[in-house]
Structure formats: C-alpha cells, structure tokens
C-alpha cells in the first residue's frame, strides 16, 4: 500500500543488530549472575561485596550495564519516534534520554569500582 523508497544508509540495520547483540550480552550475564547467586547464596554484606570484588566480575558487570544502556537508548528512541510527533519535543526528549543514560553509565562505574 505504501510506496517504498529504497535508501542506502542502513541506519535501521545497525540499530537492529546492536539491539540484538546487546540483548545477547545481557542474557549471558544475567544467566551467569543468577547461577552464581544461586550457588553462592550470599547472605551477608561481606559475602555480597566479595561477589563483586574480582576484577573480571566488575568488568563483566560493566559490559552488562553498557549493553543495557545502549539497548535502552534504541528502545527509547523507537518509543519516542512512534508516539512523540512534534520534532522539537521529540529531539528534546531524545537528548534527555541520552544524557540520562550517559550519567547512569558513569554512576555504574562509580558503584562497581568504589569498594
């Protein structure tokens, strides 16, 4: 019904792929983390903190959070593109989402490396 115009920039393909790769990274991390928590069942502050002490755990958690925030950006961008029609408002909200997610990433680094 809609006359499609073929464009060559492939913007959509890149985001589609990033959304799926970040999803897989998060799925692997969540399953491994859930398994670790079930096996170790940390029941105190010391045990809980020890779980995040190894450097590889901090790096894995950081990769999870960066995947999460990148994934959230693509999802939020899609939602804003679908429901917010005035261009100025949509652009403003997209900037707010980006700034928020970048701030979250910095916050996550602070949390993971402050102990």
């Amino acid at each position: 019904m809609v006359a499609r115009i073929i464009t060559g920039a492939h913007y959509g393909l890149k985001d589609w792929l990033v959304q799926r790769i970040t999803a897989l990274v998060m799925a692997v991390y969540v399953l491994l983390f859930a398994g670790t928590v079930l096996v170790c069942s940390p029941a105190s502050f010391v045990e809980w903190q020890a779980l995040f002490a190894p450097q590889w755990m901090r790096l894995a958690s950081l990769l999870f959070f960066l995947s999460l925030f990148w994934h959230a950006w693509i999802g939020m961008r899609d939602i804003l593109m679908d429901y917010i029609k005035p261009t100025a408002l949509r652009l403003g909200l997209q900037v707010v989402v980006i700034l928020l997610l970048v701030a979250y990433a910095a916050w996550a680094i602070q949390i993971l490396w402050s102990n």
Binding site: W48, Q49, Y104, I111
Partner: peptide
C-alpha cells in the same frame, strides 16, 4: 533504572 542502581549502590557501600 535509577532505583536499581541506587539499590546496588547502597547494598555494596
């Protein structure tokens, strides 16, 4: 997401 980050932060501090 802010609430999850906040919980993780105070649980590790």
């Amino acid at each position: 997401a802010w609430a999850i980050l906040w919980l993780l932060q105070i649980s590790l501090q």
